[in-house]
Design a protein around this nucleic acid. Structure first.
Lengths: 147, 147
DNA sequence: ACTATTTAGTTCGACATCGCACTATAATAC
DNA sequence: GTATTATAGTGCGATGTCGAACTAAATAGT
């Protein structure tokens, strides 16, 4: 049954990604949107490594994603005053706008979705998913116990 | 909140994939395992296109995945007697063994997981996820992913 | 103070995914 | 029966992801 669970999760991830990307400016992926969203909700000034950890992706992936966002003018880097090796990621106005527009563009879809799968049900499954994620996260670096 | 949902789903997908791949022979990915699993549970003799649709992936992706499995000797192709353009995917003994061994190797992990997130809770959220998937699938209208 | 180790970030290479264009076969039209 | 259209699968190119090795800066050990 756990296989079915992971199977569903995989397909939902695929479908939701492509659905979201349809509402983003050309060339922007979910990974880019997620970063913009993160910076908006939790405030900018984070370092790339912090964000890599937040998204559970390798830092090389974050480097790549941030490079794309900077090239598009949606974020900019400032040196980290507390650490010469590091940078701080700052959201630009263009970046905030792109995020806001994407969310607005998704409004109708979310509305339709919430009619099919009401928020209560989502709220009901979220804690389970979070727990699942925490377990998987903890099992990520811990090899299977000796048997 | 739906964003959080998709975010969790994305991370869970990532983590569960790498966890599963740790128990697969070197070079085999989740996509390969999923195909072996599918052929075992639903019977072999399916065409590549049928499988592409079942997994919601473009057919080019399925071509690639199946090529890898054939190269590893885990499946083999036979011509489709009903359609000269098509093939049938057959599971080999080696393929069935690899699947069985991977599942056995995951046993302890699944056991640990089921202690943290008991089967009842998984059973409770699966229908919601399935409904979510059905909606997303139906909303995937204009473009042509598979087929 | 000086060296060793750790850490932030990048570069590079490997590879999975996927869209587009193409071939071959089947189904349909007329 | 031939021409048109639709379908199954593949080759190719572009791109995202990620591991390994690298550079530079910070911290720990002595």
């Amino acid at each position: 049954m756990y296989f079915s669970l992971f199977n569903e999760v995989g397909i939902i991830n695929q479908l939701s990604s492509s659905l979201l990307e349809r509402h983003l400016p050309h060339g922007l992926l979910v990974s880019h949107f997620s970063v913009l969203n993160h910076l908006t909700r939790l405030g900018d000034g984070k370092t790339p490594l912090q964000m890599a950890r937040a998204f559970q992706v390798p830092k090389t992936t974050m480097t790549h994603t941030l490079a794309g966002l900077e090239k598009a003018g949606l974020i900019r880097f400032v040196p980290n005053p507390a650490d010469g090796r590091s940078k701080c990621v700052m959201l630009t106005e263009a970046g905030a706008n792109v995020r806001a527009e994407a969310i607005a563009a998704m409004g109708p879809d979310v509305a339709t979705l919430s009619a099919v799968v009401p928020p209560e049900r989502v709220a009901a499954i979220l804690p389970v998913l979070e727990e699942l994620r925490r377990y998987l996260d903890s099992a990520r670096d811990a090899p299977q116990p000796p048997s």
